[in-house]
């Protein structure tokens, strides 16, 4: 999952920036561009569309997701193309309430966070559910170092989801049968590629939309549906006993991401604000964008241009 943050950093940024709401460049729409491909393409689609159809000049600024939110607060950036929830829920809530500087489009894209295997893994190991990982005879089939425990990638070190995945492993109990690996995403995805190449079992944290679902035949492991009463998350930074005090033994809550924009646009660029509010991507749109950039090696600009050419009618609807 892309969004990364700490409560402390959030609080600091919010406390510093909530008070500011000045317009950065009144005649230009400044769009933040986070590091991941679907957001980069979306940023370019927004930029090209408002320029071509509304005659609004744009400026694309590459920033981290937290910085973009901060600069929406300070008035330096106008648009965040992809805000992930529930990952950034606390920050978004604080910036949106009481006429705060951020507006979140009501239309979001559904996202997923699960534990996945390849189709071949499901067939060869018999694994069907996340809870199967607690069974030693299943877990040992994912053992790559001969210590009798399997290995599972639970995310990158800096991701907010990784800490929660560790809690989930503890709550389900498979932290006793599996080694929980934290590694950069490129390493984990290359491991999936290599596992597929030699029909090797592999299990890993997965989120979508993501190009891995296009690249390989991926199976999501079953688990009980999200139940808020089963989720108590204590942050590692807040309590040394965070793991023991936390519980998360059901599926993740529904995840989704939205376009966010500066509240001032409703007054300064009302047509743009309305357009941003109406943009409605499907998960398949986002997956295709990600795939085109990451796998096919196309530039976000080229992917955006192609997408606009193929979806003129949809953009026309959003501009009405």
């Amino acid at each position: 999952m892309k969004a990364t943050f700490s409560v402390t950093v959030q609080a600091a940024i919010i406390s510093c920036l909530l008070a500011f709401s000045s317009s950065a460049q009144a005649d230009k729409l400044v769009i933040g561009v986070p590091a991941w491909p679907s957001a980069q393409v979306t940023a370019n689609i927004i930029a090209m569309s408002v320029k071509d159809r509304l005659g609004v000049e744009t400026d694309l600024q590459e920033r981290g997701t937290l910085t973009i939110l901060g600069e929406i607060g300070s008035g330096d950036i106008d648009v965040h193309p992809e805000i992930w929830l529930p990952n950034l829920s606390q920050m978004v809530e604080r910036m949106s309430k009481d006429e705060g500087p951020l507006r979140l489009s009501q239309i979001g894209v559904d996202a997923t966070q699960n534990i996945c295997v390849t189709r071949g893994t499901a067939a060869s190991t018999g694994i069907k559910a996340v809870s199967d990982l607690t069974r030693p005879e299943i877990a040992e089939q994912f053992d790559s170092d001969g210590d009798g425990k399997g290995e599972i990638w639970i995310g990158a070190k800096t991701w907010s989801s990784t800490e929660i995945e560790r809690i989930r492993a503890h709550s389900y109990g498979y932290d006793k049968t599996m080694n929980l690996l934290e590694m950069p995403e490129d390493v984990a995805m290359a491991a999936v590629d290599a596992a597929v190449a030699i029909s090797q079992p592999i299990v890993f944290y997965c989120y979508g939309p993501h190009h891995v679902f296009e690249l390989h035949d991926i199976v999501t492991l079953e688990e009980p549906p999200y139940d808020a009463s089963h989720w108590t998350i204590v942050k590692r930074a807040d309590d040394p006993q965070w793991l023991e005090k936390s519980t998360a033994d059901t599926a993740w809550d529904r995840s989704h991401f939205h376009i966010g924009y500066a509240t001032r646009l409703e007054k300064d660029m009302p047509q743009v604000a309305e357009f941003l509010n109406r943009i409605s991507f499907d998960p398949s749109d986002t997956t295709a964008m990600s795939y085109a950039v990451v796998v096919e090696g196309k530039s976000p600009q080229d992917v955006a241009k192609s997408w606009i050419e193929a979806n003129g009618d949809r953009i026309g609807e959003w501009m009405k």
Binding site: D186, D193, A194, V196, L215, V295
Partner: peptide
């Protein structure tokens, strides 16, 4: 030469030390 579906660009090296393969 093997089939190898990956998002990594041509020219990238992937080392699987556990299986003793370099791609």
């Amino acid at each position: 030469i093997v089939d190898f579906k990956t998002a990594e660009k041509p020219g990238t090296i992937i080392i699987d030390g556990d299986k003793h393969f370099l791609y």
